[in-house]
Design a protein around this nucleic acid. Structure first.
Lengths: 231, 231
DNA sequence: TAGATTGTTAATCGATTAACAATC
DNA sequence: TAGATTGTTAATCGATTAACAATC
């Protein structure tokens, strides 16, 4: 029922209907934020909310929220607002997290540990099916209840679990090689925590999370604020 | 010399000249990427590079790179390219990482550990001056050579080191409270790893790093790719 | 019906890109 | 001078926002 095959069919039929069309990238990036805000509202027992309330919870303005939601369809009621649970389901379906996505994490250093232990994975549509490390001395270690396995097992694991998403948590020097192997194994979406740009063929998506880049952006603005203050 | 006062003066004089003007936000976000690419080139012993080469190393197209650099000034030579080391310094100065920024990290769980141990901090213009945790049982622990201290010491630490940037690595439930206390203590730039939206007064910058949001964005595109493939 | 709130329009704003004149 | 490459222009594209007609 909740098989890979199951949601693939679901998705195809969704695309046959009117819902899954060209959603702007900026909107796609905000859908998970709305989803989280809606989950919080559900947990608080809120049944209905206005675009104004949801926008406040998500940290955007309400015009943007309504515009974003309009790309998915018409899930609100004029004069009333949105049914929180219904809208949450619709967004989850649009993103594709009504079923779990199997994920592999490569590189079990400090960051890999933190990622493996991150509880938000499970609750938000992802399931870590394997932890891989090139270092043979780590073999047999168990992190967050998951065995650390040989990086060479990647192909077998991807095939066995139908893994489409890989997380790179290795040092920068290893990242390109890991990415190449992931792509060869059939992974087509990569979340890269290594502080380096990786090259992938067309059709493979890469997103990058980079701590020092985020800090540098803050530093730039901080610098200007301080210059302002002393000017 | 390398004191807080020192770089503040440097910055003010930079702003008096023509370099530090209204740089578009999208450009600011890419400057650290260029900086990293230039550092790699310097390490490889490359003295000069063209916009084409640097753009390839940074993963952008060369028109965008040249446009971005044009906001900083004219640091290239037509027909020749850029002096790698000179351009690197100019970008570092523009971002504000020619001097170190003192940083505090609050929340020493798995992620806090990983952040504290992250070597890229030091080499990229940041220095972790304190690790703070609300849990008294963690007091006295030493992580990455830094003592874990009481969250109540925040004010004193901020004052002592002139901390302007804070990192939140707590659970979501604690994040707003931590942010409030940071702002009270005088911190005006926050990097938030907690999976929640935090509210801050105007003048305070917040950037957010959110693992499950990044994964959900990948899932969305992956879902569409798979639907495409089975269509 | 009157009040409330959505979904959409249209104007504005900002970012990207190709092309090329300037110039080393 | 001839070839190369920057810095800038102008056109295009995409995102944001305010306003409001539609409608519950």
């Amino acid at each position: 029922m909740a098989s890979l095959r199951g949601w693939r069919e679901g998705l195809v039929s969704a695309r046959t209907t009117d819902s899954a069309r060209d959603i702007p990238e900026a909107t796609v990036a905000r859908l998970p934020v709305y989803l989280r805000a809606l989950t919080t509202l559900v947990d608080n027992g809120t049944a209905t909310c206005s675009s104004e309330e949801l926008a406040a919870a998500a940290g955007v303005n309400s015009a943007k929220l309504r515009k974003d939601l309009s790309y998915l369809g018409s899930y609100g009621t004029r004069g009333v607002g949105y049914d929180v649970d219904y809208l949450r389901y619709q967004i989850a379906r649009e993103i594709g997290v009504t079923q779990d996505w199997p994920v592999v994490i490569v590189g079990i250093g400090n960051l890999g540990h933190a990622l493996a232990n991150f509880s938000g994975f499970r609750s938000r549509g992802f399931r870590v099916v394997a932890l891989l490390d090139a270092d043979p001395t780590r073999r047999g270690e168990v992190v967050a209840g998951i065995d650390v396995r040989d990086f060479a097992d990647l192909d077998a694991i991807v095939r066995e679990h139908g893994v489409a998403i890989g997380v790179i948590a290795t040092p920068a020097t290893a990242a390109q090689d890991v990415a190449d192997r992931m792509v060869e194994a059939g992974i087509s979406s990569i979340l890269n925590f290594a502080p380096t740009v990786i090259a992938v063929p067309a059709g493979v998506d890469v997103r990058k999370v980079d701590l020092s880049i985020e800090l540098q952006i803050l530093a730039y603005h901080e610098q200007r604020k301080q210059a302002e203050a002393t000017a």
